[in-house]
Design a protein around this nucleic acid. Structure first.
Length: 109
DNA sequence: GTGATGACGCAGT
DNA sequence: GACTGCGCCATCA
């Protein structure tokens, strides 16, 4: 692997910084890392799904607070279960009190 | 090397 | 206020 961290490595680290019980968005991460495109964040997280992935990708949702990425998990309900286990309320695959649970990456840095 | 796709976001209608 | 279409950048076939 390359010693130079790729753009998705930055996404992994930033995602790992998300505290328990909080959620972040693709746009926020993309803006913090200046990726220029929220799509790259989602695509990067797709790669984070693996046996050695300590990246809480379930804490990353889209701009609407919807668990759009749950389909990439082992089960389509895995993401919701994990979030609920951390204290985040999920309703119809969407984050309840999304604004209250929202976590700004660059803002915390 | 080109074409098509993708865990999204914004502007326009 | 809600829906549709287009754009962003990188990887896969």
């Amino acid at each position: 692997m390359a010693n130079q961290p790729s753009y998705y490595d930055l996404v992994f680290e930033l995602t790992r910084l998300i505290p328990e019980g909080r959620v972040s968005t693709y746009g926020a991460i993309a803006d913090s890392l200046a990726l220029g495109s929220a799509r790259m964040v989602g695509w990067a997280l797709n790669k984070c799904i693996g046996p050695n992935s300590d990246v809480p990708a379930h804490r990353v949702v889209n701009r609407k607070g919807e668990l759009s990425g749950r389909i990439h998990f082992s089960t389509p309900t895995r993401m919701q279960e994990l979030l609920e286990a951390e204290g985040v309320e999920i309703k119809e695959d969407k984050v309840v009190n999304f604004q209250e649970c929202f976590w700004h990456p660059a803002k915390e840095l």
